[in-house]
Amino acid sequence: MIPDSATTTQDIEQRLLKIRDRPVVLEAKHLTRHFRTSQGGTAVALQDVSFQIHRREFVTVIGPSGCGKSTLVRLLAGLDEPTMGEILVDGKTVNGPGPDRGMVFQSYTLFPWLTVQKNVEFGLRMQGKGDNECRSQALQWLEMVGLESKADFYPHQLSGGMKQRVAIARALAARPRVLLMDEPFGALDPETRAQMQSYLLQIWQNINITIVFITHDLDEAVLLADRILVLGAADGVHPGGHLKQFMDVPLPYPHDVDVLRDPKFMAVRTHLDDLVHPRRELVRDRLPITRMVPLGDDV
């Protein structure tokens, strides 16, 4: 039986409402980050950002360049200190980095001196787990990302996509409450990128994990997310990066790459595009037309 569009919409809405009933895993309260500029002034990277992320939610963070996306994820990971505000994991304030918030970086950051398996074991060893447990768990996570055959390889022997899969396995093996991903597929070619998106969705559906995913790619943001956190850059009203909207993605669940063909996908994407790139910016971005070289008749 094919559900008609009305019931589907209802299902989606109910699902999104249900997400809000789940316990809050990650909460940001009035997060603000100021930087000293070299001229002695202060630059506002992030101004008063508050939000709640629930268990098993997939949230993407998107915004124009300079809106503080990377600052936000670094604050959440504890790699940077907020000027004001606080971060709570499971209702408890956290300071500094910790294994409860795993992180996947754009630059892979695999330890080059460790084999793939030892890389995945790293977090477990930090927790003082024994050799056998480390090995068996690492191999399970490698199997999950489809790389158990590369266990004894060194990172320099892997392709970019494989490296990032190892990085994901490494972060997940430490059993974090939240997985933070800072433009993880930004350095990959489009084909590998699409493949990685599909892998990530499958992994997420298989395990109990909350994901906060930074991206600057609109398609990626809509394809992956339950909800999208839209950040805005400094404008007349706001001195710096700020929370513009925390929007729901009303697309059928579970998401997969087929969603890209859904007409509703285009609607969401267009709406997001308008939010991220307001019309006036497009006008501002126009170059003055100056003809440097005369165009001949053959053109």
Binding site: A77, P99, W113
Partner: peptide, 29 residues
């Protein structure tokens, strides 16, 4: 030593001492 490696290790639960012995030392060898 790539700061990213230290950050990655600290998000995996490494403490200061482990950052030196498990990341800095093997990284520079």
């Amino acid at each position: 030593v790539d700061r990213g490696l230290l950050e990655a290790a600290s998000t995996l639960g490494a403490r200061d001492r482990q950052l030196v012995t498990r990341v800095v030392v093997p990284a520079i060898l």
